[in-house]
């Protein structure tokens, strides 16, 4: 086993899938035999249609589910060998509906993981200020508000701040911008791109939006029907001959053509 663990580190994979599959108890296969590594510091985007297995793959990383076969490694250690609570607190997690606690203020939401990890209280307050500023929200204005008093875009920013609170090396994002209107979405995406550069974290994003994937990804992991169809840099993706990737690229070009009025 030691050999295998070392191999994972050698390949530079901070997260690694090895022949990982996931089946529902009903026998339905959501993910079949996925193998690849996420490199430290990159932004890997799972791209695919609904039901392609993107979210399932993401949930394997922070052990919300365990693989039915094969294994997933985080920092060289199999997820099933991690304590699930420790693993999840080590990984930031942002979901589409943000999952902010409606009965907590913005401050309480952002400080959630630091408090769970029993940070000394005097360290928490400056951290929440710092994080809100980082995601472009005025701390003085927002810390005492409740999620229902925020716009969708503001909620999403708080969701990101909350996920970053304990400074996790890995950030998982499931359709993070999916619930936003197109304008806010474009805006937040651009901001996130800037944030990404500053943070240097390993980020894994799930999306079904090709332009989002091209904008944010270091590499795109193309998923279809529970299988990994290929890994591409954005340039490679646009030029790929692989039928599924080519279909996405063609669709995108058609859309751009339409926008230019051709």
């Amino acid at each position: 086993m030691n050999e295998a663990v070392n191999a994972g580190v050698d390949r530079g994979g901070i997260v690694e899938f090895r022949h990982a599959s996931y089946q529902l108890p009903s026998g339905q296969t959501l993910l079949s035999n996925i193998s690849f590594a996420v490199r430290s510091g990159e932004t890997l985007v799972f791209l695919g249609r609904s039901g392609a297995g993107k979210t399932t793959a993401l949930r394997l990383i922070n052990r919300l589910i365990d693989p039915s076969a094969g294994e997933v490694l985080v920092e060289g250690r199999r997820t099933i060998d991690w304590d699930p609570i420790a693993l999840r607190r080590h990984i930031g997690y942002v979901i589409q509906e943000t999952g902010l606690f409606p009965h907590y203020t913005v401050e309480q939401n952002v400080a959630l993981v630091p408090r769970l990890e029993r940070w000394p209280e005097p360290n928490i307050r400056p951290r929440t200020y710092e994080l809100l500023a980082l995601v472009g929200l005025d701390p003085g204005l927002f810390l005492k508000r409740y999620p229902h008093e925020l716009s969708g875009g503001q909620r999403q920013r708080v969701g990101v701040a909350r996920a970053l609170a304990a400074d996790p090396p890995i950030l998982l994002m499931d359709e993070p911008f999916g619930a936003l209107d197109p304008l806010t979405r474009a805006e937040i995406r651009m901001e996130f791109q800037a944030l990404q550069k500053r943070l240097g974290k390993t980020i894994v994003i799930v999306t079904h939006d090709t332009s989002e994937a091209l904008l944010l990804a270091t590499r795109i992991a193309l998923m279809e029907a529970g299988e990994l169809k290929g890994l591409y840099s954005p340039q490679e993706f646009l030029q790929s001959k692989e039928p599924v990737a080519a279909a996405y690229a063609a669709k995108l070009r058609a859309l751009e053509g339409f926008e230019r009025g051709q």
Binding site: N62, L64, P84, I85, A86, L87, R88, R89, H90, Y93, I95, Q96, E97, T98, G99, L100, F101, P102, H103, L112, V113, L116, R162, A163, L172
Partner: peptide, 24 residues
Amino acid sequence: AIREAARGMGLTPRQILFQVELPL
């Protein structure tokens, strides 16, 4: 979605009960 987020953030089942489910 709130329960999923709570799990994903690393709350224990007990913390989910007392900090999320019961208050809500």
